[in-house]
Amino acid sequence: MIAIGERINGMFTVVKDAIAAHDPRPIQELARQQAAAGAAYLDINIGTAAADQEGTMKWLVETVQAAVATPLCLDSQKPAVIKAGLSVCDTSRGVLLNSSPLNRKSDPDVLTKYASMAMEAGGGLIALTMDSGGVPQNVDRRVEIAAEILTKAMELGMMPEKLFIDPIILPVNVPGAQAQPGNILAAIDQIRLMSDPPPHITMGLSNLSQGTAERPLINRTFMIMAISHGCDSAILDVLDDVLVDAVATAEMLMNKQIYSDSFVKAYRSTSGAQR
């Protein structure tokens, strides 16, 4: 599975404080820990930690890639911030852009902008199954949007293996949202039939358990459910050992890894890029 480490995000206090203090050490430590835990990419998200988003993105990119060789996943809803990150990013390692909806009222061509930047960098793109109408509440609209994204990406020359569809997980405890995890699984089933090879399926896993009790348990359980439907990537906490071991087991049970008595150890000894 293509694991994208979620921890370098301004929503976490330690990262927010480090950004404010311009202290690279806590950020680099998180980068090293996540790389060692098998992250294939490291997500870089400023959150609300800084007013100067473009400058902060550059600083984070430079700080992280000075510490580890892991490729980065530049995470911002603003094309200008992504562009700033790319300007200093070593894309020869690979890169992911995170993320674009199909379109926005304020920016109908947002997907084209993100896809063009991704292709120019030789990287991949995470695209959300949402559009100017917001996040769909049912299966069919999610699938329709995914189809429109895939078509648009291919028209632009981006092959499905570079495209990561994110069906958007919302917190399960939001009123009325409890049907969404099941809808997402049903949508994944259909999205994976759209092309051969299919686009990757990814998700911001921890969002599901925002504000709930039993956060790790909810995250781990849904991750396994999603893998069983063909999800092959997630933005997640790779430092959660139980979660990573559960992923290893789910992938083995889905015949993605050849079983051996030491299958967990085998998975852990495999680099993030090859898992």
Partner: peptide
Amino acid sequence: DINIAKQVNIL
């Protein structure tokens, strides 16, 4: 046995 094959390699 492919599973044992992998295990031998790991060992």
